[in-house]
């Protein structure tokens, strides 16, 4: 495995046609390395989520290419892209999107089940990941009975259960109070990030910038800055 996890080349994405045409991302190029915690920051409407969607194989760019571990994902068939997401990329959504009718451990096991793992085996592995995020004792509870921070950790457990090389977080602290938000990101930095994994976080929460290895700033669809954070707190992996 090379050191570059994701390479985006001149990505352009617009929505609508004619007068309604809006360009969300204008020629964005960057690289994210394994072992790196990269923040994509910027105000609302700056194109962060659109960029995130393009590099994670969810939204097809109008122009440009995305290489994940050296492979141009937008040259693949849609089922192959789905497979790539399943095996290489883990998602933690802003609203978590946990299944309220499933138990916590069943939620965590979903990527494993999609990978055709046997039900009992998937739950067993799911339990191990719940232990990593410190929620093993809440395995049989439904997500609605957990606090926001706990739900976020369940979503993280679900995202890492498939052992992805790339983890994508969309506004992980948006629904959390400052303290819980910091704890979550600290947890990601110290327990989830490792030399063989790249973590990309989209956020506009400046209180958690101290954990970032790199910060990419966006505005009006353009990358206006890409900075190394020399004061970043180093990671200390316990997982993978």
């Amino acid at each position: 495995m090379g050191n570059v996890a994701i390479k985006a080349n001149a990505l352009v994405k617009w929505f609508g046609e004619g007068e309604a045409k809006t360009t969300a991302v204008k020629s964005a190029s960057f690289e994210a390395d394994f072992g790196e915690l990269l923040y994509i920051v910027g105000p609302s409407g700056s194109g962060k989520t659109t960029l995130l969607s393009m590099i994670s194989g969810i939204l097809k760019p109008n122009e440009g290419s995305v290489l994940v571990e050296g492979k141009d994902i937008w040259q693949m068939k849609s089922d192959d892209i789905a497979d790539l997401r399943l095996h290489k990329i883990g998602f933690v959504f802003q609203d978590y999107h946990l299944f309220p009718r499933l138990t916590t451990v069943e939620n965590v096991a979903i990527p494993l089940i999609l990978k055709k793992m046997d039900w009992n085996e998937a739950l067993k592995v799911g339990l191990e990941y719940l232990e990593i995020v410190g929620l093993k004792d809440k395995a049989q509870l439904q997500p609605v009975k957990l606090s926001g921070g706990e739900q976020q950790r369940v979503a993280i457990a679900r995202a890492i259960a498939g052992k992805p090389d790339i983890l994508i977080f969309d506004e992980p602290t948006a629904s959390l109070d400052g303290d819980t938000g910091r704890k979550i990101v600290e947890f990601v930095k110290t327990k989830i990030l490792n030399p063989e994994r790249c973590v990309i976080i989209v956020t506009h929460d400046s209180r958690i910038y101290e954990y970032a290895d790199s910060i990419m700033k966006m505005e009006d669809g353009n990358i206006i800055a890409f900075e190394r954070n020399t004061n970043a707190i180093p990671y200390m992996s316990h997982e993978k």
């Binding site: 969810i58 089922d79 789905a82 497979d83 790539l84 997401r85 399943l86 095996h87 998602f91 959504f93 609203d95 999107h97 299944f99 979903i110 990527p111 999609l114 679900r158 498939g162």
Partner: peptide
């Protein structure tokens, strides 16, 4: 009611 979750499943990698 489960549409977003089905969407999430798609994002995770469900075909």
């Amino acid at each position: 009611e489960n549409l977003e979750r089905f969407g999430a499943l798609k994002a995770i990698g469900a075909k």
